[in-house]
Design a protein around this nucleic acid. Structure first.
Length: 485
RNA sequence: GGCCCCAUCGUCUAUCGGUUAGGACACCACGCUUUCAAUGUGGGAAGCCGGGUUCGACUCCCGGUGGGGCCGCCA
């Protein structure tokens, strides 16, 4: 059994971000590849910003993507609880430990003082770090003062003159100086640990061996290493993933548009599409293969092939992949997937009538090669459910006259009335029409016919549509078009 | 401002000192076609700059430039 344990620890302060999801995926893949364990924890120490509905979104999104955790708040595990808000007792012990070891101290500067200090340093073009004079205060005195002066914070006594070195799995050796870190805060008070302390404790207590996270955490790593040392925890291995970037090459965020898995899901991207796409952002297998299923990824994933530089989120490629996966679906599967979107668009109830379903299935199958995401189905196939509206100018093929259009429609009408009254396949319909047209211009017959049926300048061909719509409905639409003219 | 990370087509990337610098998306052209897709074929498109090291650098080293990230009583 592998001793590898990876984790993802999202904070429920928003919907699951695509970057977090990608980090989760890489952790999951790394664990699966090496027979390890993937742990999901919830970081909700910041009670003010966290919201139960976001925890639900995170859990739901991950489940929808198929990234299943081996241990989580939902499924439990040997090192439960997996939610920070349930672990305050544990943090308390370690805060106490740091304090009594003299490696943490009470800082009694007010927030206002700290803010002013920061501004001054920035003006002098100095790094805005806080080296706190309270670190030398006698412990008992500080303890007593803390009782009355509640506006305090507990800081780590960052050692001076230390070099902190670690080997990042992706980037190699990284070196930091402790003098450039400052006395960072580890807790608001005894029962309120802050991020750096909380993750370090959680990672140690849930026995995490490999920490795979975003590049934006590189600068935090020396703090975590120092904390691990102070607390007597083992040092895990680190791998920092390149960031996902917006089109302007800055870290992907809300202002770039849609960033949450939920929103992509709502737009009708399939989970396998998103998985495949995220895997290719910052990683590649070293072969020409581009299309991967999750289980396939778990076999070929290689963390050494992860990129160092950030990757721009390319929505065009996502759409291409999406179309690719949609075309892989069977008619039945795709119909099931499309139905909610279709009904929503048409304001219909979801039908459970057998005949209706067959009809919808044919419609969906026809549009399958054109579909990039499920949400497009309504707008693309509305004419199968309602009489289309269109401008009569759209009926004009090239420069033909209105009389010629009318003749064209009458021609189609005649062909259908005489030869296509009984249900026919599109191949038969095509054959009948082409024979009837003979040497004549196909465009002047087929274009108006298609527009009459769809009201669109772009759509599938008329034969496919007639097959599904039937002769009766086709004639109805022809009749109406003649009236419009 | 300090520290850190990064640098091949527009975008995602292959190359682990010797290649006509390969693939994918997007784009363009052609074929199939009444239109739009799907599909097939073809095309344009890249090593940030300057120094080294080397018989030979996209690849290794140094400097510059550019981009990004981090510097909370957020995570």
């Amino acid at each position: 059994m592998s001793s590898i344990r990876t984790r993802i620890a999202p904070s429920p302060t928003g919907n699951l971000h695509i970057g977090t999801a990608r980090t989760a995926l890489f952790n999951y893949l790394f664990a699966k590849k090496h027979g390890g364990v993937f742990v999901l924890r919830i970081e909700d120490t910041d009670l003010e910003r966290s919201d139960p509905k976001y925890e639900k979104d995170i859990l739901d999104s991950l489940r929808w993507l198929g990234i299943d955790a081996d241990e989580s708040p939902e499924v439990g595990g040997p090192y439960a609880p997996y939610r920070q808000s349930d672990r305050t007792e544990s943090y308390k012990n370690y805060i106490q430990q740091l304090l009594s070891q003299g490696q943490a101290f009470y800082c009694f500067h007010s927030q206002k003082e700290l803010e002013e200090e920061k501004q001054k340093l920035l003006e002098k073009k100095l790094p805005p770090l806080h080296f706190c004079e309270y670190r030398e205060m006698e412990a008992r005195e500080a303890e007593t003062l803390a009782q009355t002066k509640t506006d305090h914070v507990i800081r780590f006594k960052t050692p001076a003159g230390r070099k902190i070195t670690f080997t990042d799995i992706i980037r190699g050796e990284l070196v930091f100086e402790s003098d450039l870190i400052g006395d960072f805060s580890v807790a608001r008070k005894m029962d309120s640990a802050l991020y750096h302390l909380a993750v370090v404790v959680d990672d140690a207590e849930t026995k995490i061996s490999h920490i795979i996270r975003g590049e934006d955490h590189i600068a935090n790593t020396p703090k975590h290493i120092l904390l691990n040392e102070a607390l007597g925890f083992p040092q895990p291995l680190y791998a920092h993933l390149p960031l996902i970037l917006g089109p302007d090459r800055s870290k992907l965020s809300k202002r770039h548009g849609v960033t949450s898995i939920t929103e992509y899901r709502e737009q009708g991207y399939l989970p396998e599409t998103l998985i495949n796409f995220m895997a290719l952002l910052g990683w590649n297998p070293g072969t020409d293969q581009e299309v991967f299923a999750l289980n396939e990824l778990a076999q070929v994933f290689d963390i050494a092939k992860v990129q160092k530089s950030g990757a721009v989120f390319n929505i065009e490629k996502l759409d291409w992949l999406s179309g690719e996966y949609i075309r892989k679906k069977t008619q039945e599967e795709l119909t099931k997937l499309c139905l909610p979107y279709l009904c929503d668009f048409l304001q219909f109830k979801i039908p459970n009538d057998q005949f209706q379903n067959e009809y919808v299935e044919k419609v969906v199958a026809l549009e399958q090669p054109r579909l990039k995401k499920l949400s497009e189905i309504g707008e693309k196939t509305e004419y199968f459910f309602r009489m289309p509206k269109y401008d009569k100018e759209l009926l004009r093929w090239k420069n033909i006259t209105e009389t010629e259009i009318l003749t064209s429609l009458e021609f189609s009408e005649k062909v259908i009335k005489s030869k296509i009254q009984n249900p026919k396949s599109k191949i038969e319909i095509e054959k009948i029409f082409l024979e009837a047209i003979g040497e004549g211009d196909k465009g002047s017959i087929l274009w108006p016919l298609r527009v009459v049926l769809t009201g669109k300048k772009a759509s599938p061909g008329p034969f496919d549509i007639i097959e599904i719509l039937g002769a009766e409905e086709t004639l109805k639409r022809l009749e109406r078009a003649k009236k419009i003219l």
